[in-house]
C-alpha cells in the first residue's frame, strides 16, 4: 500500500522577538491511504504547526511533505481542515456554511448539486432539518458536526483535524467519535487527527503517533488493535483489557515526552 501522507525529516522553527523557536525537529510520519492517524503530544510541542505544514499553509525550514506522491509547496484543493473552533460563518445558514468549500473548489458546479451534496452530509451527521438555521442557533456539538461536514464536502483525500472535539463535554465528544467513525465508513478519506484525549486517539486511530516535547519528533508509534470488528468499533471496546493496555502504553509515552518519566526525573 502506498503512503498518502509522507512527512520526511521535517524541521521547523518560528522567528520570535526572542530569537528562533525550534518547534519540529527531523519529524517523520507516514499515513497509508485510507488510514486514520491520531497524533498526541505535550501541549505546545508543535502539533498545530504540523497540521499547517501538511495543509501547505506554511513551508518547513527543512524536510519535505508529500501528499499523494506530490511534494506539497502550497495549499491544495484536495485537503479538508477542521479546528477546535468550528469557525462557522454567522452570516450564512448551516447549509451555506457547508457549501462554502465547493464555491472555491468547484465554482461551476450547479447550486442544486452543491445543495444535494451538503444535505446528504448533514443527514449523515444527524443535522437534517437544521439546514436553514444560523450557527448561533445550534449547540456546540451540532456546530462541530456542521464544521466536519464542511471539511469533507468537497471530498478531500486528506482530512486534517486539530483537536476538533477538544472544547466539547465528554458525552457530546463520545457522540462525535461515533459520528466520525460512521463518516469514515461512508466517505473514504485519509485522516490526521490531533488530539489530547488518549481514549479518542485509540478509538478513532489506526495508528497513534506520540510526539516528543518541543522541538517535536516522532517518539513512538502505536498500531491500534481495536477489540472486536475494526470497521464497527464500539465505545465499550475502550473498557477492555486490550485497550487499557494500549492506553497505559500511551500514557507512559506522554510522560516521557513531557520529561516527567521516573527515568528522566533524576537529571
Amino acid at each position: 500500500m502506498t503512503n498518502l501522507i509522507d512527512i520526511k525529516g521535517v524541521t521547523h522553527a518560528y522567528k520570535t522577538p526572542k530569537g528562533l523557536l525550534p518547534v519540529l525537529s527531523n519529524l517523520n510520519l507516514s499515513v497509508p491511504e485510507g488510514e486514520f492517524a491520531a497524533v498526541v503530544g505535550p501541549s505546545g510541542c508543535g502539533k498545530s504547526t504540523l497540521t499547517r505544514l501538511v495543509a501547505g499553509l506554511m513551508k518547513p525550514d527543512q524536510g519535505e511533505v508529500w501528499l499523494h506522491g506530490k511534494l506539497v509547496k502550497s495549499p491544495r484543493k484536495t485537503v479538508g481542515m477542521a479546528f477546535q473552533n468550528p469557525v462557522l460563518l454567522e452570516w450564512r445558514s448551516i447549509l451555506d456554511n457547508v457549501i462554502l468549500p465547493l464555491e472555491i473548489v468547484a465554482p461551476s458546479m450547479p447550486r442544486a448539486q452543491k445543495v444535494a451534496r451538503a444535505e446528504e452530509l448533514l443527514a449523515l451527521v444527524g443535522l437534517s432539518g437544521f439546514e436553514t438555521k444560523r450557527p448561533s442557533e445550534l449547540s456546540g456539538g451540532m456546530r462541530q458536526r456542521a464544521s466536519l461536514c464542511r471539511s469533507i464536502v468537497h471530498k478531500p483525500d486528506v482530512l486534517i483535524m486539530d483537536e476538533p472535539f477538544g472544547a466539547l463535554d465528554a458525552f457530546t465528544r463520545e457522540d462525535l467519535w461515533q459520528t466520525m467513525h460512521d463518516l469514515r465508513t461512508k466517505e473514504p478519506f485519509t485522516a490526521v487527527l490531533i488530539t489530547h484525549d488518549l481514549r479518542e486517539s485509540v478509538y478513532l486511530g489506526d495508528q497513534v503517533f506520540v510526539l516528543s516535547g518541543r522541538p517535536a519528533t516522532t517518539q513512538y508509534v502505536l498500531d491500534v488493535q481495536y477489540p472486536g470488528q475494526d470497521r464497527q468499533r464500539k465505545l465499550d471496546g475502550l473498557y477492555t483489557p486490550e485497550c487499557s493496555e494500549m492506553l497505559a502504553t500511551l500514557r507512559e509515552q506522554i510522560k516521557i515526552a513531557q520529561g516527567r518519566h521516573p527515568d528522566a526525573a533524576g537529571h
Binding site: G56, L57, S74, P75, K77, M81, P101, I104, V105, I160
Partner: peptide, 18 residues
C-alpha cells in the same frame, strides 16, 4: 480576523481577494 477563518479558505488555495 482569527487565523482559522482565513485558513478554512486558504487551505483550499483560495486567493487573497476571495
Amino acid at each position: 480576523l482569527e487565523p482559522e477563518y482565513r485558513d478554512i479558505l486558504r487551505s483550499l488555495g483560495a486567493s487573497r481577494f476571495t
